[in-house]
Amino acid sequence: MISADVLIIGAGPAGLQAAIHAARKKVSVVLVGKTENSALAGTHIENYLGIPGKADGSEILRVGSGQAEGFGCRMLRENVISAARKDGGFEIMTENDTAIKARAVILATGISRVKLGVPGEKELFGKGVSYCAACDGNFYKGKTVAIIGGETESAASAELMTAYASKVYWVAKDIAASERMIRKAADAGAETVRASAKAIIGEDKVTALELDDGTVLSLDGVFIELGARSSADLAMDLDVMPEMDDSIKVDSSCFTGTDGIYACGDVTGKPWQLAKAVGQGAVAGTSAAEWVRNNVSE
C-alpha cells in the first residue's frame, strides 16, 4: 500500500503542473498516469507563452515529468481502474493492483476520446454498438460480441463479457493492458484479435465487424472501450457528479465541491488548451496541498 497526501490522476500537463505545485508545498505527492496517452503527446504547440516556434508536446511532457519527480513527486506509469472513499480519505486501485491511500485527489484525466470514428458506429449505436460492457452485457446472453480497445479497461470488459456471451473477441492492435488482465481475459476464453476495426456492419442491427486486415467477424454486438476508466466514472466513484457533457465543474480554486477532490485541465471543460491546463494545474496542486495541511491532523 502506497500513501500520499495528494494523489493526482493523469500525466498530462495539468497533472504534472499540479504535481509540481503540490510537491513544493511540502506534502507527499503521487501521480498515476501515462504521459504517452496525454492529448499533448505527439503534437506541436505554437501558442504557449514564451516558447517560440513549434514546441514538441512529447518533449514538454518528458521534461515536465522530470521536473515533477525532481520536486519529490512519485510517478506510477499506469492507469487507475477504480477509486473510492475510505477512512475519511480515498483509496485508488491501479491496473497492476497497486492500492494507493490518499487524503486529497486531483482529477487531471483530460477528455476521454470514446468514439472509434468508423462507418456504422453512429448509425448502429443502441442497435448492437455499446460503450459500456458493464451496463449492456446482459443483453448479449448466448451471443457473439467483440470488445475494441487495447487498455486494461477493454481487457476487463472482454473478461466480463465471457460470463454472458457465447463467443468474445478482444480486438486490439496495440495492447497496453496490464499482464494480469490480459491473462484473465484469455483464461476466461476471450479470443485476442490483433487488428483495428474498419467498419461496423448491419442494417437495423449489428451483424458483423470488418477489420483492417480484411477479416470480417460475424457477430451481434460491438463494445467500444478505447481508453482508461473514464473521468466521469472515476468522478462518480468519488461522489462527484459530472456534467452531462462529461466535464467536471470546479470553482476558481479548482475545487469540485466534494471535500478533498480537485480537478484541472481539459477535464474541467473548454477551452482545451495547454495554457489553461497548466494554469489550472498550478491552482489545483496548490489548493489540494493547502487543504491537506489545513484539514488533516497528523
Binding site: C132, A134, C135
Partner: peptide, 10 residues
C-alpha cells in the same frame, strides 16, 4: 436502467 450503469445514474 440498471443500478451498475454509470450513465443511468446521471
Amino acid at each position: 436502467w440498471a443500478p451498475w450503469c454509470g450513465p443511468c445514474r446521471r
